[in-house]
Design a protein around this nucleic acid. Structure first.
Lengths: 190, 190
DNA sequence: TTGCCAAGTGTACGTTCGTACACCATGCTG
DNA sequence: CAGCATGGTGTACGAACGTACACTTGGCAA
C-alpha cells in the first residue's frame, strides 16, 4: 500500500481551512479513519516533517510546511523547486506582505497616476502607518483631505510628491506635507 | 476606565501570530493579566463581536473579525469605512487571492513582457492549474520548455499568445499550445 | 525464512480544559 | 438614591484531552 499520509494531511488541511484549528487526536482519528493512537503516530510523523507544531498543553498548531504552496521558481527549466524559499520565512501570502499587523491598513487604488510603478486602478495596497517615511518610498499622502499615492522626493525646496506617470505633475506642498503611511506591498485579483 | 478589550485582543493577536493557535482560557488569563473567569467573560464578548469562534469541545478559534484589517476605502473623504467589504467574504489576503488552494501554485515573474498589464519583474503570480483557460485571460504557457506569461488570444489561425508590451512580438505556436494554468492574482512587496 | 521496522489497535491514567455558580466593585440611568 | 448591567474574582467539578505502554499486522531486506 502506498503512503497514506498525504491523504490524511489533506483531510487535516480541509478541516483547518474550515475551522482554523487543528482538531484533537480523537477528532483526527475519526476524520481520517484510524484509531486515536493511529492519529498520534500520524501526527508524530507530521511534526517530524515540519507540518505540525505542538503548543503548550500538547495542543496542535500548524507549522510552516502545513501552508506551503508549491512555488514554481524563476528557473527556466520547469517545475522544480517545490519550496517557498523565495517567500522567506513567510508561510502565507498574508505574512509575507504584512509584517506589522497592528499598524497596517489596506487602501484601494483609484486612478492611474502611479501606473509606471505597477500600481493600477483597483489594486489593493498594503500600507504601514508611518508619518515619517524615507525619501524615495511610495507613500500615502493626504492632499486637500484626499488620499493620494506618490513617490516621496526631496528637492531644493524640501519634500514633494512625484507620480509615476508623466501625464501627471509633481505636487509641491504649500505649507506642510501630511504623510499617512508607507506603501509596503500591493496585490490584485484578475 | 476605558474599554480594555482592544488591548486584550491585541495580546491575543500577537500570540496567535506567533503560535497560530488561540490559547486556553488559563493562558489567556495570564496573557492579559486577569483571572481565568475574567478571560471567559472577555472571550464571550469577543465571540459576540465576531472575533472568536468556538469549535468542538469548546476549543477557541479565530473568526472573521479576528483577521479583519482596517480597510481605507476609495472614498475621497477620509478614514471612514473600517469594513473590509471590498474584499468580499475573504478574511485574509490569502483567502482573497487563493480560491482553490489544492490547484494553485505561485510563479515568480521574470522579464517585462507583461508590464502593461501591471506585471513586473520580480512579482509573484497566483496561478491556478488549468490547461484550458478562456480566451482573453492571462495564462502561463509552456514554450520551448520555459514558462511564459502572456494573454491568450484567438485569431484566424487559432490560439496565440500576446504580450502586454509593444516591444515584444506575439507568439504563434508551431504545433500546439501548452497551457500550464491561468493567472488569477498577483502580489508584490516594495 | 527469519527478523525487523513501520503503521495501526486497545486500554488505562493523570492532567488540564471548559463550564457553572456565587460573589464583589464600579459606573451609568431612571 | 435605588437599581442594574458590566467587568472582574474565587472555587468547584465532570468531561475530554494528551500521554504511555503493551500488543498486532504487514511489507521488506538480509
Amino acid at each position: 500500500m502506498v503512503n497514506k499520509d498525504p491523504f490524511y494531511l489533506g483531510r487535516l488541511q480541509d478541516y483547518y481551512a474550515l475551522h482554523r484549528l487543528i482538531p484533537s487526536y480523537a477528532e483526527i482519528a475519526s476524520l481520517v479513519g484510524v484509531s486515536k493512537q493511529g492519529a498520534v503516530k500520524f501526527i508524530d510523523r507530521m511534526i517530524f516533517a515540519g507540518y505540525i507544531r505542538k503548543g503548550s498543553g500538547g495542543r496542535l498548531s500548524p507549522a510552516n510546511m502545513f501552508f506551503a504552496r508549491p512555488h514554481v521558481g524563476r528557473a527556466p527549466a520547469g517545475f522544480a523547486s517545490p519550496a517557498t524559499e523565495a517567500l522567506g520565512d513567510a508561510i502565507t501570502i498574508d505574512e509575507y506582505l504584512v509584517e506589522r499587523p497592528s499598524s497596517t491598513v489596506l487602501v484601494s487604488v483609484r486612478g492611474d497616476s502611479m501606473i509606471d510603478a505597477g500600481i493600477h486602478d483597483g489594486d489593493f495596497l498594503i500600507v504601514e502607518r508611518n508619518t515619517n517615511p524615507n525619501i524615495g518610498k511610495i507613500v500615502v499622502a493626504i492632499v486637500d483631505g484626499d488620499f493620494t499615492i506618490k513617490y516621496l522626493r526631496s528637492g531644493s525646496d524640501g519634500l514633494f510628491l512625484e507620480p509615476a506617470n508623466e501625464d501627471y505633475p509633481n505636487i509641491y506642498p504649500e505649507t506642510s506635507l501630511d504623510i499617512y503611511g508607507e506603501v509596503v506591498g500591493q496585490f490584485r485579483k484578475f
